[in-house]
Simulated assay, not measured.
Amino acid sequence: MTRPYKIPVSVLVVIHRLDGQVLLIERTRPAGFWQSVTGAIDYDDEPLEAAARREVAEETGITGGELVDWKLSNVYELYPMWQHRYAPGVTRNTEHVFGLTVPADTAVTLCPREHGAWCWLPWREAADRCFSPSNAEAILQLPRFVNFV
């Protein structure tokens, strides 16, 4: 049985604490690509919030926190290295942005197939470390949605 193509609709979840620290995770392939949690919806009518919660749990082991739909979306060209995951002719993805506020003592358990390291960084530093411009821009929006303490 062949694996179905990914649907070109995804979620980006900026996981953060109320002190302005943002969780970044490093991809195993290619190494050095730091990002927030991202992932495609699994089926056409999967609710975006459900996809966001699922991706966060799969990639970080985090199941709690306050999830907020930031009502932001990005449309971007698929990176050539991941183009093969999508149906022929699909070149763009629509990414929906969420924020997830978690307590300072939140445990992180990575999915080793996808990610090899994680770190908490101040939000501006986290934005600078992201390989994806849309991810960096989402992190820079954090002060619009969160009052830091």
Results as ranks from 00 to 15, higher is better:
residue 50 A to D: 12
residue 62 I to F: 04
residue 40 A to T: 13
residue 80 P to G: 01
residue 56 V to F: 02
residue 73 S to R: 14
residue 93 N to E: 11
residue 55 E to V: 12
residue 89 G to V: 02
residue 73 S to E: 12
residue 112 P to Y: 03
residue 38 T to A: 07
residue 80 P to V: 00
residue 100 L to P: 02
residue 61 G to A: 13
residue 103 P to V: 07
residue 64 G to W: 02
residue 96 H to F: 08
residue 105 D to N: 15
residue 70 W to M: 06
residue 122 P to N: 12
residue 76 Y to I: 03
residue 112 P to E: 02
residue 61 G to Q: 12
residue 127 A to N: 06
residue 73 S to F: 09
residue 55 E to L: 10
residue 61 G to S: 15
residue 117 A to Q: 14
residue 98 F to H: 01
residue 111 C to H: 12
residue 102 V to C: 04
residue 76 Y to N: 07
residue 97 V to E: 02
residue 87 A to W: 04
residue 81 M to R: 10
residue 131 F to Q: 06
residue 89 G to N: 12
residue 63 T to I: 08
residue 117 A to K: 14
residue 101 T to I: 15
residue 40 A to H: 03
residue 100 L to K: 02
residue 38 T to W: 06
residue 48 L to T: 09
residue 87 A to G: 04
residue 47 P to A: 14
residue 50 A to L: 12
residue 66 E to S: 11
residue 86 Y to M: 03
residue 126 A to E: 06
residue 45 D to R: 08
residue 58 E to N: 14
residue 117 A to F: 04
residue 88 P to D: 08
residue 61 G to C: 08
residue 41 I to E: 01
residue 113 R to W: 13
residue 63 T to M: 06
residue 130 C to T: 05
residue 120 W to P: 01
residue 115 H to F: 10
residue 123 W to M: 05
residue 39 G to D: 05
residue 52 A to D: 08
residue 108 V to W: 07
residue 108 V to D: 13
residue 121 L to R: 10
residue 106 T to I: 13
residue 71 K to W: 07
residue 115 H to E: 03
residue 73 S to H: 10
residue 85 R to M: 09
residue 86 Y to P: 01
residue 61 G to W: 13
residue 113 R to I: 15
residue 55 E to K: 09
residue 51 A to K: 03
residue 101 T to V: 14
residue 88 P to Y: 01
residue 82 W to H: 09
residue 61 G to N: 10
residue 66 E to Y: 13
residue 74 N to S: 14
residue 114 E to M: 09
residue 61 G to V: 08
residue 67 L to F: 03
residue 92 R to C: 01
residue 56 V to E: 00
residue 101 T to G: 11
residue 111 C to Q: 14
residue 80 P to S: 00
residue 102 V to Q: 00
residue 87 A to I: 07
residue 82 W to I: 12
residue 58 E to T: 07
residue 81 M to K: 03
residue 129 R to L: 08
residue 115 H to W: 05
residue 53 R to K: 14
residue 78 L to V: 00
residue 98 F to M: 03
residue 52 A to I: 09
residue 40 A to V: 05
residue 131 F to G: 09
